[in-house]
Structure formats: structure tokens, C-alpha cells
Amino acid sequence: MKGILLILLTSASLAANAQNVLVPNTHKTVVMKFTADWCSPCGTQAWDDFETLVGDSKNQSINAICIAVHNENSDFDAVKLDPSYTAYRPNLVNDQSGIPYFAVSNTIIDPSDVSKIEAAVATETATPADVNTGFLATWNSAGDEVTVNTKTTFFNTASGTYAVGVYMYEDNVFSPQQSRGTGIYPSESVYHHNVLRSPVSGSSVFGTPLTGSNFQTGTSIDNTVIIPKPVTSNQANITLYTITWKDNNGKWEVANANDAASFPAGINNAVGTDVVSGIYPNPATDKLVVALGQSIDRCTINLVDAMGKNVAELYNGQVNKHAIALQLQRPAGIPNGVYFMTINSNKGTQVMKVELR
């Protein structure tokens, strides 16, 4: 499944703020559903299975990033993948020509039982990771291009050929799907989740190779890529992620995957003791509960977008010393998307990621 991640890696220049990139010592893989909007079985059991897997990923019951890969023959540009749908197929351990089908890393898994896919993810991520790639993304003022600073860090001594790719998917893409909804295709649209985006035709599926083949514990490699936003996409619904690939006898396998962005430029995480123990629900719609891990005198809570812009002040005032949580209201006019919540209190500064839907 790995092969179909078709996003670009462009410049190899190092970014000035690469030191701000955090590399999580976690282990994730990638689940891909290969599909098309005109495909009838893609809108029935395979659709339901993918919805289950996306939910599993969001509540962290599986350690995976779940991606829907629509082929280039899909009827509608909103979901269509470009470049060619077949570009990734030589990388699959067991090739498959028909759709729908699922793959974990680069191995096709029997889609008849979603528990088999969940079990394959558990097997892939059962051991500690040797390497991961963190990233910090900054959109330009027009919102049509994102600069991504990456840092690849080896947690253990490793050898072999590695490459790093930066990709994006879009959630809540409103477009028709055969066998979905109550209407006759294509008269009715539905929301597609986690649709793979590939804004540049002809770019490498696997990103940029890392220089060298022997890596010591603690080795870090910085890189910078610039990715244009696909014309048909909504920036607020785009999530960036990285995949660190490892070559295994000519087949690229997912060594690790990461969708936890570092904090935007100008924001530093966890200065002082963590005051907030959690944000619930997350994703959220209209209300947010900020759980307090310790007592504070007062605080300000701001909502910051992916470009580091402060979009709303959620709270500014005293806090009862016996309070265990603060309930916040989503301000009117704030679009759906992924944000950062900055909590400034007398105990320090903390930043947490929150998704609004």
C-alpha cells in the first residue's frame, strides 16, 4: 500500500526553524483503502470497514494513519487521484488489480473481516520504532502552499536504505459515491474521509532518500519541502503526515508514519509543568472541556491555526482553585480543521492539538 502515497518532496534545503521540529518516539503504520467513486462495492462493506478503521485511528485503538486512495479514473475531481493509480502497484508484495482492497504497509489484507486489518496493524506496530520523522508545517498567507520542515531521528542503530515522504489527506470531501446515500449515483453526494491528495504529477511516491546506509542512535537529518495545496481541496480539512520508508529487497515498507505536527513557528510547547491533562471531546463540535491536572490562579487560552495565527481567545480570567475543568464554547465563524490551543497560566505555557468538526 505504500506505493500509492504520491506526494512531492522538492527542495533539500535545511530550514532555519528545523530545531523546532519534534520527533515523537511512537510507532505507526499506514492503512490504505483503494477505491473509486463509481465502484459499487466500494460504497458498501468496504466503506463501512474504512469508517471503522478511521474511528479506530482517531481514538487510538490502532496505531495507523488511514487513507482512502481513489484512482485516476474516478468520475469526480473532488476525489480523483493524480498521478496514475498504477504508479504504486509494483511495490505491493501481492499485487491486486481489482477494487476495493485494503493494504497495511505494502501488504494486501483480506478485507472480508475488518478485524484482520486491525490485527495486521497491531503486528506491524508491536515493536518499538527504530526511526521516525517529525514535521512543522507553515502555510503561506494565501493558503495555497505549505512549507514543511522535517526531522528524521533514529532511536536505535539501523542500517539499510531509507527515504522520507511528506503527504496530505483531506477529510470531509463532499462528492458522489456509488452505492452510498439514498439517491441514484451520481445525484447525491456524501462525505468521504481521509482522501489522499497528490498535488504534483510525476513526483516520487516514496519521497527523498536519506544519505547513507548506516545510522547511529540519535542521528537526525533535517529537510525542507514545499507542497502546493490541491486546487479542489479545502485547507481547513487537510492533514499532513510523514512516512519513513525502508527498502526491503526492492520493496518499500513503512518503517514509521507520523501525523502529529510540531507546533507552528513562534509557539513553544510545555514551558513549565503541564497544567492541562486533556481536552474533551477531541475532535469537538461546539463545546470543549479542558481538564486541569493541577490548580492555577488564572489563565488565558487561545486558539491558533496551522500558520501560527491567533484566531480566537477562548478564555481569559481567574480560575477557581478547586476547579478541575474549564468548559469553553467554540466561537462563531471558526471553520472546521486542526488547531493548536495555547494555555498560558501562572504555572507556565502549554500547547495542545485540537480538531474542530
Rank of each mutant, 00 (worst) to 15 (best):
residue 242 T to A: 03
residue 267 I to Y: 14
residue 344 N to P: 05
residue 91 N to M: 06
residue 177 Q to F: 13
residue 183 G to K: 08
residue 154 F to C: 10
residue 245 W to M: 12
residue 197 R to V: 10
residue 147 T to P: 01
residue 351 V to C: 14
residue 169 Y to E: 03
residue 10 T to S: 15
residue 149 N to A: 15
residue 206 F to K: 01
residue 283 P to I: 07
residue 279 I to K: 00
residue 41 P to D: 07
residue 241 Y to S: 06
residue 129 A to W: 02
residue 57 S to E: 10
residue 168 M to V: 09
residue 319 V to C: 12
residue 22 L to G: 00
residue 315 Y to G: 02
residue 61 S to Y: 06
residue 130 D to G: 12
residue 25 N to Y: 05
residue 52 T to P: 02
residue 349 T to M: 13
residue 22 L to Q: 08
residue 204 S to V: 13
residue 186 P to Q: 08
residue 121 V to H: 10
residue 67 I to C: 00
residue 159 S to V: 06
residue 144 D to N: 15
residue 312 A to V: 11
residue 335 P to L: 08
residue 333 G to N: 13
residue 16 A to T: 08
residue 305 D to M: 07
residue 151 K to M: 10
residue 53 L to M: 11
residue 140 N to P: 03
residue 335 P to N: 11
residue 63 N to R: 14
residue 281 P to D: 05
residue 100 P to V: 08
residue 276 V to N: 03
residue 156 N to Q: 14
residue 85 Y to W: 14
residue 124 E to H: 10
residue 222 D to Q: 11
residue 86 T to C: 02
residue 297 D to S: 15
residue 110 D to H: 08
residue 87 A to Q: 07
residue 161 T to P: 06
residue 98 G to T: 15
residue 63 N to D: 15
residue 97 S to Q: 12
residue 42 C to E: 03
residue 11 S to N: 14
residue 226 I to T: 15
residue 40 S to K: 13
residue 60 Q to L: 13
residue 53 L to Y: 06
residue 149 N to S: 15
residue 108 I to F: 05
residue 12 A to L: 15
residue 9 L to R: 14
residue 120 A to F: 08
residue 346 N to R: 09
residue 64 A to G: 13
residue 188 E to A: 04
residue 88 Y to R: 02
residue 305 D to P: 05
residue 338 V to Q: 03
residue 312 A to P: 15
residue 34 F to E: 00
residue 242 T to K: 03
residue 237 N to W: 04
residue 306 A to N: 06
residue 274 D to M: 05
residue 113 D to F: 00
residue 34 F to H: 11
residue 102 F to W: 05
residue 220 S to E: 07
residue 146 V to L: 14
residue 41 P to Y: 02
residue 56 D to Y: 15
residue 266 G to Y: 07
residue 47 W to D: 04
residue 227 I to D: 07
residue 310 N to S: 12
residue 30 V to T: 02
residue 55 G to N: 14
residue 192 H to C: 04
residue 76 F to M: 06
residue 189 S to T: 12
residue 214 N to T: 15
residue 281 P to E: 03
residue 162 Y to N: 08
residue 304 V to W: 15
residue 53 L to A: 04
residue 232 T to N: 11
residue 211 T to C: 09
residue 229 K to N: 02
residue 163 A to C: 13
residue 274 D to F: 08
residue 332 A to Y: 09
residue 210 L to E: 00
residue 211 T to R: 08
residue 139 W to G: 00
residue 13 S to T: 14
residue 258 N to Y: 02
residue 180 R to N: 05
residue 334 I to M: 11
residue 93 V to F: 12
residue 225 V to C: 09
residue 62 I to M: 09
residue 194 N to E: 12
residue 228 P to D: 11
residue 293 G to E: 07
residue 239 T to G: 01
residue 354 V to E: 01
residue 350 Q to I: 14
residue 166 V to L: 03
residue 220 S to I: 00
residue 23 V to I: 11
residue 357 R to I: 06
residue 76 F to H: 07
residue 39 C to Q: 12
residue 346 N to A: 06
residue 153 T to W: 06
residue 35 T to Y: 01
residue 202 G to S: 10
residue 319 V to Y: 09
residue 116 K to N: 11
residue 267 I to S: 02
residue 98 G to D: 10
residue 243 I to Q: 08
residue 322 H to G: 02
residue 351 V to W: 03
residue 238 I to L: 14
residue 220 S to D: 01
residue 305 D to K: 06
residue 11 S to E: 11
